[in-house]
Nucleic acid binder design. Structure first.
Lengths: 196, 196, 196, 196
DNA sequence: AATGAATGAGAATTCATTCAT
DNA sequence: TATGAATGAATTCTCATTCAT
């Protein structure tokens, strides 16, 4: 399957793996080159600089890591809403369990965002997109009459905060009843749950 | 008060500020030395290596950043429980607003934990302590009769996940109704909130 | 006319322009290739190495930049000698004003001559040719009876030194009364000027 | 004599020698370091970058290479003016014969001036200073009554052009009657020489 | 007639660290 | 309690060149 990757893909993959292991600054072009089995300058044939290689990874990661990738709003119905929201969420953070390098790399980007204004903007917008995804989903739930109409925004953000951090805690290997936590969080936003 | 800091403290403080700005790997001893106004080798008089300096910072950060620093369980009463939990929580993540270097450094450590097993363990235990803090607090609430007796652990973890991530989102400057989200989360764990 | 230059000429022209701008060592084959719009190895189809390309430029430059190109001895007469010498000289250094890349490249070669014995010889012979050109011209003037018969060689060299350096100063953009200086120099070698 | 130079001076000297031989771009820090017998980073202890090292050389060269270094106007009298001007001039370009690296480095700077605006300005001002030096000297000669009062500026510039280029031709090793040329040039500007 | 892919050598620079003083 | 001087190893990146196609 992996048989004969082209060099560019091999560079990208090696970069992912190594950055996941050693961090953005901790990964040098030498490391990548020797992982791929090519010479250092060969990388420059595909990417004009380390920065641009990292940018490329950034886009790959976040293009795969958006809300709609995990929660397809159009498949939600009145009947399946709660169940679907629960299972989609579980699917989302379960990915962390498999410890895909991409997810650790996301972490690296979050970190470096604090230092690189360019990333900060992009990352912020991705996060906001994520929040808006939940808002839209809950709004749709309100339309369907299955979601409490009060505080949609606050509820959406709460769900986003929880599910995002569940992944973070998972990476650290902290034991929690992830599914139960998520189920509870979802239940709180379902109709009949509001009392305040 | 700050007048004549001793060199060691000056090094530590400079290291904090710089790591917050440039990251762990992005901060060199040169930078620290010139920030403090001493020579590079002077740092070696106080710390045998960069690694040990970082270790020292690590301990400082996490000794100040523990649960009981923000939530003093013994001041909670049946009457003030909810209010207190809300205000203590707000106080916790409000600190992020002031953007204290220490908090950005925590982030750096979280990140580097993925790469340094030594940190990983320590960090994990700190996180778990944080979770246990919430568990203990909620258990005390159950005793006092103000907290739902069901799913104490799940509720405690939910609170921890939310409050921790509220800080993360704040660092990125994402606009949310932070207080409302926290109030809602607290309300969900108060007695009378349980229905499922 | 220039419409469809062949690749070789395009390489040469690009090389000229770029060397004039960035110097001999500051101009890489990559730069030339991308200026021409071809691939780097394509240059190797026309020139076996950078060195040989530079050699080629060297010859082009100095074949165009010889004495007789500017001073056609056979058009000088007793009557027009002074005037002609003045106007030909002006024409010579005025070319510097137009800042032709070729002239900056000459400079580069002069410089690199100090480092490359191969160029040194060639350059020296070109300079000597230039000096001999003036000697021949003045000798002819002596024959015609318009030029002081004393010190012909010294006078010729003086003229050569002045006219050559006028160009150098022009490149630097130093303001001088170039024409007056040249006129005065020419006058000094005309008959009747000698007194010592 | 050379016994125990300090490292900085050794770096500067090595840089001079090597730049004279291989040019500005052709001289690497590695070369300098190994010539001095130190490690590459040691150079960075003394100079923050190659550029600043070159700047330093630039200043050294031109501080030693100014008009008043060679022509001390206050030692010129009515009686010794011509003789003095001739001998000072000879002393000036004779220095080229000894082929001091500094002079070849000047050449390098002249060349690179075309590419580096920062150098261009500096170099231009040095050249202009040189021209003004001759103007001032000739003006003084006019005051003393030994120099033709006509065209002082043009005469000064002519002398400057000749003496400067005599050095250039000397570097190339072109044979000329340098002294005679200079003597003739000086004679032309002395009183009694004017006729036009 | 030209290119895509790759490389070895070497450039400038930075870093953590050492050691005599 | 510090520093001046120095270093080995590493970093990103560029360059002239090669070669199969």
């Amino acid at each position: 399957m992996k048989k004969k990757m082209n060099t560019q893909d091999a560079i990208v993959e090696a970069a992912f793996t190594l950055i996941a292991q050693h961090g953005l600054k901790g990964t040098s072009l030498s490391m990548i080159a020797s992982e791929v089995g090519i010479s250092k300058p060969a990388i420059y044939y595909y990417f004009p600089s380390k920065e641009e290689l990292v940018d490329y990874l950034f886009h790959i990661v976040f293009d795969d890591h958006n809300f709609s990738e995990f929660f397809s709003i159009n498949e939600y119905t009145k009947e399946n809403f709660k169940k679907r929201l629960i299972t989609d969420g579980i699917r989302y953070f379960e990915e962390y369990k498999h410890n895909s390098p991409a997810l650790k790399v996301v972490h690296e980007f979050v970190l470096s965002a604090a230092q690189k204004p360019r990333y900060e903007k992009k990352l912020k917008s991705i996060m906001e997109q994520f929040l808006e995804g939940f808002e839209a989903l809950l709004s749709y739930g309100v339309e369907l009459g299955v979601i409490s109409s009060k505080n949609t925004k606050v509820n959406a953000h709460s769900l986003a905060l929880i599910i995002d951090n569940l992944g973070n805690f998972m990476i650290l290997g902290i034991e929690m009843d992830y599914k139960k936590i998520w189920e509870t969080a979802v239940s709180h936003v379902m109709k009949g749950s509001e009392r305040f």
